[in-house]
Structure formats: structure tokens, C-alpha cells
Amino acid sequence: MSFTLSPEALLEALHWRYATRKFDAARKIAAADWHALEQSLVLAPSSIGLQPWRFFVVTDAAVKERLMAAAWRQVQVVDCSHFVVFAVRRNLGADHVARHVARMAEVRGLPIESLAKFRDMAVGNLDQARAEGRLDKWQEHQLYIALGQFLASAAVLGIDTCPMEGFEPAKFDEILGLKGTEFASVVACAAGYRVPDERYALMKKVRFRTEDVIVRV
């Protein structure tokens, strides 16, 4: 399969992307573009393919206002077109693996019995991580893979983003109805379009030299 995006176009999009401080509150993401961004989240890779997440897309102005209050009044929350909260599914176990295996069988047209070895491996990995006290943190890390895919996909579409950890997770959970559930807020991302006079957009991107971060072995 070939893709039309050239290496030059990809790098141009990544250079263009930055953590947007000021969004144009009057400009909204078109439905087709937003559908593509939602699918970039659905298609995000995860360890063993377990997808330990749920993505809450917030466009309601009143809910945005409440979330902004729990994010130290960062205006990106209310001014962006779509605000996404990345929530992890905590304490994964055999029931989650069973749902995943059932979906694999459905999509690939396989008898569910043929996936028993994979199911046992996945459950064993989760049980080991739980015993070592690292299960939830391991699953939280998966959300950053999805976030990275979302940021890159948005840049390719010419849509601005601002990833955010600066909020009170417990308050986000309460606002989104997650309190007492198996889900918990971890990170968020505003998406929309920058204002024309955004000074940060004009600044050169500062990164270490390639030879300082890339080691070819």
C-alpha cells in the first residue's frame, strides 16, 4: 500500500505543529476532519492491542467551563473546538481480555477457541503486572501513545492541538461522571485552530541537534 504524503510534507506538518496557547473560539473543526481524528484514536496502537482507554470528546460550552475551572483556568479548554480527555481503564483483568478476544474473533472471522493461547498470554501479562504493582501505570503509558498519534494526525490535517497534563484529575473525573467507575482521567488535549496573531506560532522550534538524540547502531 502506498500513501501520497511525502517525507517533506510530513516534516513540514510536524514543524508547523506546536502547543497552541490561543485558539480561535469562533472556528470549529469540520465534521469530516473530526471524524478522521476520532478514528486516529480508535486506530491507536496499544500493548497487546488491549486498548485500555476511553476518550471523552467535550464540545458543550458549559462542561468546558467546568473543566477549565479544574485546569487552572487555562483558556485553551473553552476556546478550542474539541477538548479530548484521555481516560485509562484501571485494573484490567480477564473480563477486559475476554471482550478484546471476542472482538478479534468478530473482526477477523475466527472461532473464539482459536484465540485461547493469546487470551491466556494476555491475562498472564496483566496478572504479572498487577502482582508487581505496575499494572495501572503500564496502562496509563498506553494513553500517551494514543495522544502522540492524535497530535501527529491533527498536524497532517492542519489542525492545531495543545496536550495538557495541567489539571486536577479527580475533579475532571467528577465532572465527566467517572468517579466510582473503572475509568480515570490521565491527560487531555485541546484541538482547533490558532488565532492569527499567536506569537508562539512564529517562534522557531527548539530541539537538540539530530546527532544529540539519534543514535544509529
Rank of each mutant, 00 (worst) to 15 (best):
Q74Y: 05
Q149G: 06
R134P: 05
P163K: 12
L41N: 02
P111N: 09
G177V: 05
H82R: 15
Y18K: 06
A184I: 03
R209N: 14
A31Q: 11
L43D: 15
L115T: 02
I214M: 13
E165D: 15
D136L: 11
P163G: 11
R99L: 13
I112W: 00
V42D: 01
A61F: 08
V187Y: 05
T161Q: 08
A94G: 07
A31S: 12
M203C: 03
P163I: 11
R199Q: 09
L92F: 12
V88L: 09
Q51M: 10
Y200E: 12
D136S: 11
D120Q: 12
L135N: 02
I29V: 15
Q139M: 15
P52M: 06
V217G: 12
D120Y: 02
V85Y: 10
W34V: 00
E132G: 08
P52G: 10
A94H: 12
Q128E: 14
Q51D: 11
R207W: 05
P196D: 12
T210A: 15
V123K: 08
M121V: 08
T210D: 12
D79T: 11
H100G: 02
V187C: 09
T161Y: 10
L126E: 07
A13I: 05
V186D: 01
V78P: 03
M1I: 00
G177E: 06
P196H: 08
V78D: 06
P163Q: 12
F86N: 03
A188W: 07
I159E: 08
L14R: 03
R90V: 00
D212H: 13
L37W: 02
A122Q: 01
Q39P: 00
Y18P: 03
I29F: 12
A61E: 14
E140C: 11
Q74L: 05
E38H: 00
M121I: 08
R216A: 10
R119F: 02
R216D: 11
P52R: 08
E106T: 10
L5N: 04
M164L: 15
E182F: 06
A31W: 06
S114A: 15
Y193Q: 02
F167E: 11
L147D: 12
F56I: 14
G133Q: 02
E174C: 05
S153N: 00
T20M: 06
L115Y: 04
Q142D: 07
R207L: 13
Q76V: 14
R27C: 09
L143D: 03
R27T: 13
C162K: 08
R199N: 02
Y18R: 13
V217L: 13
H35Y: 08
P52Y: 07
R21S: 09
Q142S: 03
L202C: 01
A61Q: 15
Y200C: 00
K179D: 06
S47H: 04
